[in-house]
């Protein structure tokens, strides 16, 4: 059985928000290490991988590996019934056919305990092995800055070319009616304060769909920083780390000409 108690429902709400438009159904793989979700979108262009460490929960118990097949739309609805600061407990039995969620709140006049149950489903999905990759370029920047860049450029065109060079990282969008490019230079003062960093072994140029990057940027509410890892001709890794775990996205580049 699984019993996992989170100190704030907001974490799950934000995670669902950051995943549900890419993937409609997914297995929450629960084991003694924590809860993991890994799924590819229908078009096999993007993969999302979420990890919640057991240590990130107020209480965590999982006796044996348990895949919980979740319809993310249904879970989103059930989580909407929780207040952000409610204590949230997830429970499932070994037969994994029902997920129960309990929301507890203390207020000035009374304690409220709300209980919800949702049906789980059998999802036949291959677990994918993600190879360790030595990336040619690694860029860490404020997640709000990345959100703003991809949102702005998505107004101009469908794609963004990301160029990492000695100059810094440049985001370029060539739209039909307008184009734009944004250069972020390594700033000695800023890097000293650990606001961001650009590390590069060799120059990288890759082109990506902005629609996906805008979608990934929903994770900005989970972490103040985002890390972009790139090598030529391999998927981009967009990683957000938070206290209780991480969310990572892999995105296939656009190819050819």
């Amino acid at each position: 059985m699984l019993e996992a108690k989170l100190s704030e429902a907001a974490l799950l709400k934000r995670l669902l928000d950051a995943v549900k438009e890419l993937v409609s159904d997914a297995n929450f793989e629960c084991n003694e290490e924590g809860i993991q979700l890994q799924a590819m979108d229908n078009s096999h262009v993007a993969l999302v991988s979420v990890k919640l460490y057991a240590s990130g929960f107020k209480r965590y118990r999982c006796d044996r590996p348990l895949p919980l097949g979740v319809n993310l739309g249904s879970l989103t609805k059930v989580l909407k019934c929780a207040k952000d600061d409610d204590i949230c407990t997830l429970k499932a039995g070994d037969d994994a056919d029902i997920l129960s969620l309990t929301y507890e709140a203390k207020s000035a006049y009374a304690d409220r305990i709300a209980e919800y149950e949702m049906k789980l489903m059998d999802i036949d999905a291959d677990q994918l092995g993600i190879p360790d990759t030595d990336y040619d370029a690694s860029v860490t920047m404020p997640s709000s800055e990345f959100l703003r860049i991809v949102r702005d450029l998505s107004l101009l065109g469908e794609s963004v070319r990301i160029e990492v060079s000695k100059e810094g990282i440049r985001f370029v969008s060539d739209g039909e009616a307008a184009n734009g490019n944004i250069l972020i230079k390594q700033n000695a003062e800023a890097s000293g304060k650990k606001k961001g960093s650009i590390e590069m072994n060799s120059a990288v140029t890759l082109t990506f769909s902005l629609k996906y990057l805008v979608n990934f940027s929903k994770s900005s509410s989970l972490s103040k920083k985002v890390q972009l890892m790139m090598s030529n001709d391999v998927p981009l890794l967009v990683s957000y780390a938070f206290n209780q775990g991480h969310i990572r996205y892999y995105l296939a580049p656009k190819i050819g000409d």
Binding site: D126, L128, P131, V234, A252
Partner: peptide
């Protein structure tokens, strides 16, 4: 114009 690539081939089934 560039075509959208796929992830197939980058990850292996466990």
């Amino acid at each position: 114009a560039k075509q959208q690539g796929r992830l197939d081939g980058f990850f292996t089934a466990k």
